[in-house]
Amino acid sequence: MSVIEVRHLRKAYGGHVVVDDVSFDVGEGEIVGILGPNGTGKTTTVECIEGLRSPDGGSISVLGLDPQRDRAALRRVLGVQLQAGELPERLRVREAVELFAAFYEDPADPAELIDRWGLGPKRDAFYRDLSGGQRQRLSIVLALVGRPRVAILDELTTGLDPQARRDTWAAIEQIRGEGVSVLLVTHIMEEAERLCDRVAVFSAGRVVAVDSPAGLIAGLAGGQRLRFRPSAPVDEAVLRALPEVDAVRRHGPDLEITGRGELLTAVTTRLARLGVVPTGLRVEQARLDDVVVALTGHEPVEEPA
């Protein structure tokens, strides 16, 4: 069953269409990523799902609720981490979490949540004295303190150092283990590959692909590359005839084959039937960022770590 269902969503600001015919689902217990360059309607889409903006067209359902009509009910089951947003400077970590816990009927234990997210030593610190990473973790804690069934996390690990980033990913996997469905807005490819069951790639306000990260990579033309030295001469046309193969090139004694899908299996099987052994075989996989570049025509912007 789908926890979030977005159908033909459309949103324009003063005649400028920012989200155009966007459709995707988030299944129960699934982590779905929204991926794409900046300014492609990711945040607007998420804000429509959160009920902060009203769509101009299409429909959204979150656990069967309409974000505009059923605002009150939605807010009890949805946990949101906003991309930007601060707290009062002299609010202590513990006070912030206890405050937000009081907003919900059956909240998580604030102290336990603070410890789990590594904020234990900072429980009595003022918000203004927290580092960027600590603020980020606090904002995740506030999104989860109401024990939401659905969590929307916008730029989850932006501003975190690599170790904090990995810790955060591990914690998100733990939330998923508890049955929370997660919609993750990100531009960090490694994060999407590591966490997401499926990814919706946004480009210029549209969804250009929805698939698992592996599926997207496998489907990319020339997304896989094999290089080997055949033990005996091979007729390149035989390899080109394989549906998985996009191109065959010769580099001296070596062959380089690019293609998609089960390229490795297809090529090695064919070679075996020809009695040819691929020696020095190397396999190169495209990464998710290659897919996003190919789909959107934008270089992903990787923030400085």
Binding site: R75, R76, L82, G85, Y104, G146
Partner: peptide, 17 residues
Amino acid sequence: VAYREKGILRRLAITPV
């Protein structure tokens, strides 16, 4: 105004309060 500027009002808008 500081609450609005810092996004605190917006943050509260997505809670049951």
